[in-house]
């Protein structure tokens, strides 16, 4: 068996390459779903992942995929653990993840808030005033939200006023 530090580093690389089941060009590392990889001689490899949404149906698939990848890479004892706190936020999507989202036509979420900035006011109701997203096709900022929910829990639907194309966006969480 390789030395622990090396094993952890190798295992991290294998786990980090796991594709997201819904957007396979992005990895769980790009999306901030992978929270950590630890190694101990007693427990083997422990991969910690966090759900994007409480009901995210991809968690099971991701866990199975991480487990299988590590097994095939030679790690026999692998545990995939869930972490709930702190809750996942779109601020954890990496710059590489944002670039890949835009490349497949999905608008990345709004830029991360400054640390410590409040997420919402005391009555956080937008009552129809929607956050804007930049069109991933033509780049125009002149777009409108057509639906706050889309084909997966983490996305919303938009239409570009400049080029007329509909597109999906990852909504801020």
């Amino acid at each position: 068996m390789v030395a622990p530090v090396t094993a952890r580093t190798l295992a991290y690389g294998v786990a980090a390459g796991t594709p997201d089941p819904e957007i396979p060009t992005l990895t769980i590392e790009d999306l901030g779903i992978l929270r950590g990889v630890d190694y101990s001689p007693g427990r083997g490899i422990v991969v910690t992942i966090t759900p994007t949404y409480s009901g995210c149906p991809a968690m099971r698939e991701i866990a199975a995929d991480v487990q299988a990848r590590l097994n095939r890479a030679g790690f026999e004892r692998v545990t995939v653990a869930t972490q709930l706190a702190p809750p996942w936020t779109t601020d954890w999507i990496t710059p590489e993840g944002r670039r890949k989202l835009a490349a497949v036509g999905i608008a990345p979420p709004p830029e991360a808030r400054a640390s410590g900035a409040p997420r919402r006011g005391p009555v956080p109701l937008t009552l129809g005033r929607a956050p804007s997203a930049r069109c991933p096709r033509c780049g125009s900022p002149d777009t409108r939200l057509t639906a706050q929910f889309s084909a997966t829990a983490c996305k919303s639907l938009h239409r570009c006023n400049a080029c007329g194309e509909p597109f999906e966006g990852v909504k801020a969480l």
Partner: peptide
């Protein structure tokens, strides 16, 4: 507390809708 903290973000979208 952790379950609730996750739920808060989701429920804010439900309420807004």
């Amino acid at each position: 507390a952790a379950i609730a903290a996750k739920g808060v973000n989701e429920l804010a979208y439900h309420r807004d809708y």
